[in-house]
């Protein structure tokens, strides 16, 4: 009771008995400032979000999948398997007949890798931000930089709604630039995606969404796998076969127990044109 404001009438401050509770609640509701406050006992428990597959079984076992209506963040250095997880997630989502959007900040998406992973391009909206931006009438350069373009586009996509998965690819953006993205942007995205079934994925080199991320996954590249060419080929050649990748669950708000450092490893397979 010490937290109640001092201007409350004396009639409601004394004893809270079972009999007087309804009348007290009525009096409390009569105070305009407190009328909108929901009692803690009446707060509804937020249901656990639906989890969807990432397309990689080991990651699904590690995290339980990707939560809908939440912001999930995947980070790691170059060649750590972030983009492999990205195309796998896009492939899984598009094969579930969901429309997905990829906000490609540095225009780095490789359609061939996507096709090899099984992405159905008919359901993928690819937004290529970057330097080759449109010129305004009169010949002046676009006023938005790649990161600002990506943030604006992401905002539009999330406000529009209807997407099964929205991925913001900041993987090639320098760490110092990513850290300069205001926290309010991530809060805005989180609030926009919260009441929707959209999975919001952010890929970067370092964690940037901080408290807004419900799931934080770190990726690490373990080793590259090579193989020698089969007989009949020149003897000196060996080809890059794939990557051994490890993912570590750094934080998950979806599990009530404290998060332990749990890891999972998986392999990827390289594809080539021709």
């Amino acid at each position: 009771m010490s937290s109640l404001p001092s201007h409350l009438p004396m009639a409601i401050t004394p004893v809270w008995s079972a009999k007087s509770r309804p009348s007290c609640e009525k009096q409390l509701n009569a105070i305009p400032k407190l009328a909108r406050v929901t009692a803690a006992s009446k707060l509804t428990v937020r249901p656990r979000p639906e989890m969807v597959s990432t397309g990689i079984r080991e990651i699904d076992l590690l995290t339980g999948g990707l939560p809908r209506g939440c912001l999930s963040e995947i980070y790691g250095p170059a060649s750590s398997g972030r983009s492999s997880l990205l195309v796998a997630s896009l492939a899984a989502a598009t094969q579930r007949k969901e429309v997905c959007a990829l906000v490609d900040t540095t225009d780095a998406f490789d359609p061939l890798s996507g096709a090899a992973a099984g992405v159905e391009f008919e359901r993928l909206l690819w937004i290529r931000c970057g330097t080759n931006s449109p010129r305004r009438h009169g010949g002046t350069e676009n006023k938005y930089g790649p990161v600002e373009q990506a943030l604006r586009v992401s905002d539009l996509l999330l406000q529009s709604g209807g997407f099964g998965l929205v991925a913001i690819d900041l993987a090639d953006v320098p760490v110092q630039v990513v850290r300069r993205i205001p926290l309010t942007s991530w809060f805005r995205f989180q609030r926009a995606v919260e009441p929707t079934p959209t999975v919001l994925l952010v890929f970067s080199q370092t964690p940037c969404a901080r408290t807004c991320a419900s799931l934080l996954l770190q990726m690490r590249g373990q080793m590259a796998v090579v193989r020698h060419r089969s007989s009949g080929a020149p003897t000196h050649t060996e080809l890059f076969e794939g990557l051994q990748i490890e993912g570590e669950l750094m934080r998950s708000r979806l599990q009530r127990k404290p998060v332990q450092s749990v890891r999972a490893a998986f392999a990827t397979k390289a594809v080539r044109a021709g």
Binding site: G55, I56, S83, S84, L85, L86, V87, A88, D107, A108, F109, D110, L112, S113, G114, A116, A117, A171, D172, G242, L243, F266, A267, T268, K269, A270, V271
Partner: peptide, 9 residues
């Protein structure tokens, strides 16, 4: 098996 994605410059 997951595909090793290439990031294009």
């Amino acid at each position: 098996c997951a595909v090793t994605a290439l990031r294009i410059f």
